[in-house]
Amino acid sequence: MQKKVIFKGAVLPYLLLAPQLLITGIFFFWPAGQAIYQSFLREDAFGLSVEFVGFENFLDVVRDQTWLDSAGRTLLFSGSVAVLALGSALFLAVQADKHIRGADVYKTLLIWPYAVAPAIAAVLWLFMFHPNIGLFGRMLNGLGIPWDYRLNGNQAMLMVIMASAWKQVSYNFIFFLAGLQSIPRAVLEAAAIDGAKPARRFWTIIFPLLSPTAFFLLVVNLVYAFFDTFGVIHSLTHGGPGKATETLIYRVYTDGVINLNLGSSSAQSVILMLLVVALTVIQFRYVERKVHY
């Protein structure tokens, strides 16, 4: 379905595109250009002198053991967020796809977390898991399980993973539900008549037919975990305790805004940018090829 409108002259089309181009330019290309430009410079802490250093900032970054640790942590964090968010969303979507009473209410409620700002989501989790004022935090301590994510790095990581995944479940849920509903009912009925019980139907019919959706969501979730979880981490743990929850994006912030090491911070952003570009390319390649029907 393509509708083509032919304009006379070039002025009107450019005029119509201008707002979009302007926004993209100001809020994306300009800062991105700045980051790339800065990543080749080294500035002293007071901003008095600037020198061009080529790829030295990049080399410093990838040679820095703490950055590599942070990268490893980010992989663990992003992988866990993606698996948790995808897994629970798929489970919930399968439940919602069944014809149950109150399904509409259930679907609406599941979509709400997506509308919650990261800071508010963090506060919500804080109210649940704070060791002194949180409902579950106090319960855990009451049961004799020492729980304090402000002191225990693993617990802190668990907290930010759960809070980040929770925010992404709604988004995944919507896509999974749409994917499930696009599977013709007769196909599943045919499988049932062929002798497949529900679990087998899920793994041999539903899951393969959902795999393009799942792959698309995997990339979206990874990108989300890499970049969009700054707010959650910042509100919950500030990257701590120690560096226990310092992911790459959080480190860009610490190095650039707190430590004012603009050259290194920019180099790190550029590396992250390249990562997103790579993920997006893979996604488009794969999704285009792997669609049934």
Binding site: P184, A186, V187, E189, A190, A191, A192, I193, D194, G195, A196, K197, I205, P208, L209, H292, Y293
Partner: peptide
């Protein structure tokens, strides 16, 4: 009895083949 346990086979109007 579930469809799986009835030992019947069905042919549907829209074929209902497993697309993958």
């Amino acid at each position: 009895l579930e469809p799986a346990d009835r030992d019947v086979a069905m042919v549907f109007q829209n074929y209902a083949l497993y697309p993958h």
